[in-house]
């Protein structure tokens, strides 16, 4: 679906996820700041999603354990999901992860979480309604809602831009009629 050169997909894959090493790996200690030593099993490191995914999916020869086990990133922790469930409009998604929904979609590919799909969809919908209102009645950068606008993730920004542009096109057409 997404192109190889899709910047948003690349940036999504670069977001960090917490990983726990299941095995001791010699020479990887630098990930932990331990320059020359081995990476001990059981230690937790934040790795980019693409690397963590590869390590978690690759099976060690012979044994059935994978090299690392993935955990949910903090942006999708229970605390955040509960906040989204309570009132999605007040959560600052951008500070959690600039590509929040893309990250969510990637995580959902790896874990099966029916509830998270529901929460993310509902949050996206209720925020989309506010985005549309903002796009049609801009109240200036300092008006109410400026905080909400600052907390939009990349997807939502594109949505805002698209609906703002179409509203503006209709307004331009209406004023052009008067000429």
């Amino acid at each position: 679906m997404s192109s190889y050169y899709d910047v948003d997909a690349i940036l999504t894959d670069a977001q960090k996820v917490p990983c726990t090493f299941e095995l001791t790996v010699p020479g990887l200690g630098f990930l932990e700041g331990n320059m020359s030593g081995p990476m001990k099993s059981g230690s937790k490191v934040e790795l980019p999603l693409w690397l963590g995914e590869m390590l978690a999916l690759s099976q060690n020869m012979g044994t059935n354990t994978s090299l690392v086990s993935l955990d949910h990133p903090t942006a999708l922790s229970h605390r955040v999901l509960n906040a989204l469930k309570a009132d999605a409009r007040t959560v600052d998604l951008r500070s959690l992860a600039p590509h929040f929904y893309n990250l969510g979609a990637r995580i959902l590919e790896l874990f099966e979480e029916e509830e998270m799909i529901e929460i993310l969809s509902d949050a996206f919908k209720s925020r989309a309604a506010v985005i549309a209102d903002q796009a049609h009645n801009p109240r200036g950068a300092l008006g109410e809602g400026a905080d909400f606008m600052r907390g939009l993730d990349e997807n939502e920004r594109q949505l805002f831009r698209a609906s703002h542009d179409s509203a503006k096109a209709v307004r331009t057409w209406m004023t052009d009629l008067k000429k």
């Binding site: 969510g104 979609a105 997807n155 949505l159």
Partner: peptide, 11 residues
């Protein structure tokens, strides 16, 4: 845009 976003989440 909304439908695309929802599809991405529900993929």
């Amino acid at each position: 845009g909304v439908v695309d976003g929802l599809r991405k989440i529900g993929k």
